[in-house]
Every structure is written in C-alpha cells, then in structure tokens.
Computed example of a mutant assay.
Amino acid sequence: MTVPVFRFAPSPNGHLHLGHAYSAILNYRAAQATGGRFLLRVEDIDTVRCTPELERDMLEDLAWLGLTWEKPVLRQSENFLIYEDALRKLEGMDLTYRAYLTRAEIKRFVAEQEAAGVSWPHDPDGAPHYPGDRAVLNDEECRRRFEADAPFAVRLDMRRALERVREPVTWQECAAEIPSNPAGAGWFEARKIPADPAAWGDVILARKDTPTSYHLSVVVDDARQGVTDVMRGRDLYHATSVHRVLQVLLELPEPRYRHHRLILDVDGRKLAKSDRSTSLRDLRTAGFQVPDVHERIGILADM
C-alpha cells in the first residue's frame, strides 16, 4: 500500500483553539500509527488577515502540543501562480465567468424573491446561490462594470461543469476515529458517498485581487503534496462535493476523506476564531498543560 500522507492545514488569521488541536493531533497520530507522513500547510491566501505574527504563534502552539512536521512548510501565499494556472485550465474549458454583484446586491435580490414567494436555493452553509448578473443588472450596467474593471469574483459555472463531468461524482469516506490497529487494512476501507456539487451553486474560485479561493487551492495543494488521507472536521463534509468535482475537472488524484467530530462550546456550537473561542495560547497562559488539552478534547494522551 502507498505510504499514507496526512496533513493539517490551518489559516493564521487568528489563534488556534481546541478544535484545531483535536484535528492536528488526530492527523499527527494517524501518520505515526500507519508509518505515514505528517505535513503542515499554512493556508494564508488572505494576506490581510493572515500575518507572520499569527503564523509564528500557530507554529509555537503546535510545537507545544508535541507535534513535529516535515519541512519546508508549504505556504499558499507563495504559490499564487500555481493556483492561477489551475484557474486558467478551467477558464480554457469555458467553465468560469466573472460575477460583479456585491454581497449587498445579492442579499437584496434574494430577499425580494423570497418576499414574492420564490423558494431561493441556498448552499449547505446557508449562503444563497448566485443569481447571475443579468438577473439584477441591465446590459448597460453590466458593460459599465466590465469596462471599469470593477471588483469581481470568478465563479465556476456548475451546470456546465457537471455537463462536462457527465458521470456521477462520488468520494471515498473512511473512518476518522483512530482504532487500536490503524495500520490494519480495515481502517482504509471506504464507503462511496454520492457527491452533490449542484447544491453549492456557482462557487467562487478566485477574486479580482486574489487569484484563488479555499476550494481551488485546497484541491491543488492536496494533489501536489501527495496527500492520500484528508482528515478534517464534519463542518467540511458537504464541501467535499465541490472538491471532488474540481479534482475530476483538473484531473487530480482522489484522496480518501475522513470527517471527524467537532469540538463544541458549552452552548453546543462549533468553536470558531470569529467567535473568539478560548485559544490554546489563552489556556497556556492560564497554566494548562498538554495532558489538560487532551482531556478537554476527549483524546487519550497515550493513544
């Protein structure tokens, strides 16, 4: 069997919390238990919110947890040309288009449709499907924004993409919980899950000022790093549909996917940087030790 390759890919746009610790430790221990490799990838395509200082703190926190990783670390901000190349391939297939509507315009249009009794589709994360520029703007305004090089997003035309793919898209879902003998063949047995990319509508692949998006860069990087097992939180389960259709279109290898449980707060909500969930650095400052973190996230210290 090919040597398993696992990765942990955080964004340095805030400090790591217990949910990140759980995912990082799972990937690290899975690599150790299977004789595989553990990679760290810095997903810093947002060059405004992601800072060198936050990356330094992130690496310190992971080292404090006892994790080690292969070097050099891949930083997405250093690889924009590679993502641009993937985007050009999709553009060459006539599968992308520029979308000029602002978030406020989309929100207002969808609200008007729903007020009129139209059941407007939303993606699994709750965002409304893109209505298309001409549903909101007249031809003159569309032309004006194009000629003025107004801000835009590059979106995947999902209908055309699925017509090109033709065959139903699936993904391989394996167990995320590490058993007593993960090196055994059973842990790598996969169920085929039917993908539903259409549920996401025309996803964003890039923006005028950023030549990539999470969806595009993650599939490109998993392929170029030879990642065989993508182990991540259940909040990204449905996004796998988008990743699989991009892998098929770009002729990238298909990894196995493992979606682990989420670490929740006292109100049952997923931990999030945007909610200022208690960070690992806060716990360290409060005197917590690594075994305390293991206990908090429900993972055995000697697993």
Rank of each mutant, 00 (worst) to 15 (best):
Y100W: 13
D229K: 01
V203A: 11
V203P: 04
A223D: 01
P168N: 05
D275F: 07
R56P: 06
K107Y: 04
R29V: 08
H17G: 00
H215M: 07
A104F: 04
M231E: 14
L246F: 05
A176T: 10
I178R: 13
R234A: 14
R88V: 13
P10G: 03
A286L: 11
H215E: 11
G14H: 02
Y130P: 03
D292C: 13
D139S: 11
R166I: 10
R7F: 08
D292F: 12
T278V: 15
T285S: 13
L264R: 11
R155F: 09
P52V: 10
G117V: 12
H238Q: 15
A116N: 14
V219P: 00
N138R: 03
K208N: 05
A31W: 05
G117F: 11
L205N: 03
H129P: 08
Q76M: 01
A30I: 08
G287N: 07
K270A: 10
D275I: 02
L162K: 04
I25D: 02
D235V: 05
Q76C: 01
W171E: 06
K273N: 04
F152H: 15
D46G: 01
W120V: 12
G226E: 04
E78L: 09
S23P: 03
K107M: 05
V248A: 15
C142T: 13
T210M: 14
L216T: 05
A99R: 06
V110K: 00
L262T: 12
R108K: 15
L280I: 02
Q225P: 00
R37M: 06
A198W: 11
A30M: 14
T2Q: 13
D302A: 14
L271Q: 03
Q225M: 09
P182M: 07
E60G: 14
T212N: 07
T285W: 09
R56E: 15
G287K: 02
H20W: 00
R143V: 14
F38V: 01
D61R: 04
S279P: 00
P124V: 07
V248T: 14
D235E: 15
H129K: 08
L59Q: 11
G184A: 12
A198V: 08
A148N: 15
T170A: 11
L101W: 08
N138V: 06
T102E: 02
W64N: 04
E43H: 00
V290L: 09
R143M: 13
D133P: 02
S274K: 12
L65W: 07
I25Q: 03
R207G: 08
P121A: 12
H259W: 05
E295C: 13
T212Q: 04
D57I: 13
G201W: 09
F38E: 01
P4H: 01
M231G: 08
E60C: 12
A272C: 08
L300D: 15
R166A: 15
R41W: 00
R155W: 10
G19L: 01
R29I: 06
R88D: 12
A24Y: 02
H129M: 10
R88Q: 14
D46C: 02
L252R: 01
R166L: 10
R160I: 08
V219E: 02
D157L: 07
H122Y: 12
T285A: 15
H260Q: 10
F288N: 09
E114I: 10
T210A: 06
A206S: 05
E147Y: 12
W200D: 13
A223R: 00
L216N: 04
L162A: 10
D46I: 02
K192W: 04
I297H: 12
